[in-house]
Design a protein around this nucleic acid. Structure first.
Length: 478
RNA sequence: GCGCCCAUCGUCUAACGGUUAGGACACAUCCCUUUCACGGAUGUAAUACGAGUUCGAUUCUCGUUGGGCGUACCA
């Protein structure tokens, strides 16, 4: 059996979309599972939609996601170049070959004429399609027009009858009758190919064995198969993936939430979490399990277990997965991931100190960014207290109690975890009150909030001086 | 309009034609606990509808309905 080769072929029109990430991921996982190659190819054949920096952005985002390609831009293999705008000659040659074999023809129709016939067809409730006027042109007529430099495109000839059968790995057999297919433009007047020509030519030349792409491509697949047949090439295996959806089941779009991988990156989601989540949107192993590392996904993934129905992108599960994956990370790794942020806002604290806060926060963090946003009390004295925290943790007798606790702590020489805890416990026994009655206001005073890790751990970490000064400050203010 | 695809708890999904239709997220209750989280237990909740095939249908067939995608010199 030939080597498995898959590709991800985005157009550089902006940022990497989570739907694109999933397509890339499935291609990557399938290739790696089968000891194959994964290729990145840039489909920049629409000159009007190019976005500057999009290619670099795509590459760096894929890199962040841990999806490494074996061949592609910046990683030249034997099948390059991997950017379609650098392969124009190849497409032209192939389009001309189709003309020679009479599988394609020059079309000189203007945009105006095309617009008119389309408008009329829509008005008459007919399927809009090219009326094949230029398909009838004689060789002489064509040569004449070509000689006069008349603007033209090349269209593929669709057989007037018959049908095309697609064997799709996820969808089974799907057939289309040729009659409803349009004579698609394959080479534009600017000399660039359209998607249809470019994919087929490149997938063949790059020896792609499996075309794994979004379901939106299913309807144009018969045209691609026709092209393979015209060229006399072997047809790759197809797998059309179900779409990712908004909450209202429409195709996932910007309007209804974040769709750029970068958005999730910025929000503090781990690469592992996003991959894990997205892998499960449309694929599931045969057993009950939700948490997977990239390595595990590589071992488990099969196209046979990809589902057919669209999946709503629901952030809640992603958040939960993120929490799970964060807890598996080493403290050092978390520090590394956040280093630039720590450098920015925590520059006067040592790595050792920050690692200790990470340890304390790790079990209760949802996003990576929480290590920074929900940890201010480790680094700064609280200046004011939220109403909610006060009403929950500060009772009428709290002030008196905290004054007593303050005295105890002032006299405590060995300010260690066990002693801090023991001192407070002893006081509660002495006063015959429940321990929580002391702990809650104490937490408020030293952290300014009513949530977080064990107060004793916080107290030990920030140290005796801070504890005392924060208590005094709070006692004055509250 | 036409073509194609799809249809199990709110969401992601599992289930050789035979299960009390399973798991996970979310939600609720309880336990653990100084708070929040974690962990544990329990609960609420689904086969879109209608026919047919079959001893038996979530599963196969047909229809209906609903949703989606496509229908470009965009990908």
């Amino acid at each position: 059996m030939d080597k498995i080769r898959t590709r991800f072929a985005p157009s550089p029109t902006g940022f990497l979309h989570v739907g694109g990430l999933r397509t890339a991921l499935y291609n990557y996982l399938f290739a790696k599972k089968n000891n194959g190659d994964f290729i990145l190819r840039i489909e920049d054949t629409d000159q009007n939609r190019l976005v500057e920096g999009a290619i670099e952005n795509l590459i760096s985002t894929l890199h962040w996601a841990g999806i490494e390609y074996d061949e592609g831009p910046n990683k030249i293999g034997a099948y390059g170049p991997y950017i379609q705008s650098q392969r124009l000659k190849i497409y032209k040659t192939h389009a001309e070959k189709l003309i020679e074999n009479e599988n394609a023809y020059y079309c000189f129709c203007s945009h105006e004429r095309l617009g008119q016939i389309r408008a009329k067809q829509i008005e008459l409730h007919l399927p809009p399609s090219y009326d094949r006027l230029c398909r009838q042109l004689s060789k002489d007529q064509v040569d004449e027009k070509l000689k006069n430099n008349e603007p033209h495109v090349i269209r593929m000839k669709i057989p007037l009858s018959g049908e095309i059968l697609i064997e799709d790995i996820v969808r089974g057999k799907v057939s289309f009758v040729n009659k409803i297919l349009d004579d698609q433009v394959i080479l534009k007047s600017d000399g660039f190919p359209t998607y249809h020509l470019a994919v087929v030519v490149d997938d063949h030349l790059m020896e792609i064995s499996h075309v794994i792409r979004g379901e939106e491509w299913l309807p144009s697949t018969p045209k691609h198969i026709l092209l393979y047949n015209y060229f006399g090439w072997e047809i790759p295996k197809f797998a059309h993936l179900p779409l990712l959806l908004n909450a209202d089941k429409s195709k996932l779009s910007k309007r209804q939430g974040d769709v750029a991988v970068e958005d999730y990156m910025k929000k503090g989601f781990l690469q592992e979490s996003l991959n894990n989540f997205i892998a499960l949107l449309g694929w599931h192993p045969s057993y009950d399990r939700e948490i997977f590392s990239m390595e595990e996904l590589k071992n488990e993934f099969t196209l046979e277990r990809v589902g057919k129905s669209g999946a709503i992108f629901n952030v809640e599960k992603l958040i939960w997965l993120n929490q799970q994956h964060i807890r598996k990370l080493k403290n050092e790794k978390i520090f590394e991931l956040l280093k630039t942020d720590f450098d920015k806002v925590r520059s006067n604290f040592s790595k050792e100190y920050i690692l200790k806060t990470i340890e304390l926060l790790k079990e209760r963090v949802l996003h990576l960014t929480d290590f920074i946003n929900n940890s201010t009390y480790f680094f700064e004295d609280p200046k004011n207290y939220s109403d909610e925290a006060v009403s929950k943790n500060w009772k009428p007798d709290s002030k008196e109690l905290m004054k007593k606790l303050l005295i105890e702590y002032e006299n405590l020489e060995d300010f260690s975890l066990l002693k801090i805890e023991d001192t407070l416990k002893q006081l509660s026994i002495k006063l015959n009150i429940k321990i929580g009655v002391l702990i809650n206001p104490f937490r408020l005073l030293i952290s300014g909030t009513n949530v977080g890790p064990s107060v004793f751990h916080i107290a030990e970490l920030i140290g005796k001086q801070k504890v005392l000064s924060r208590m005094k400050f709070g006692l004055e203010k509250l």
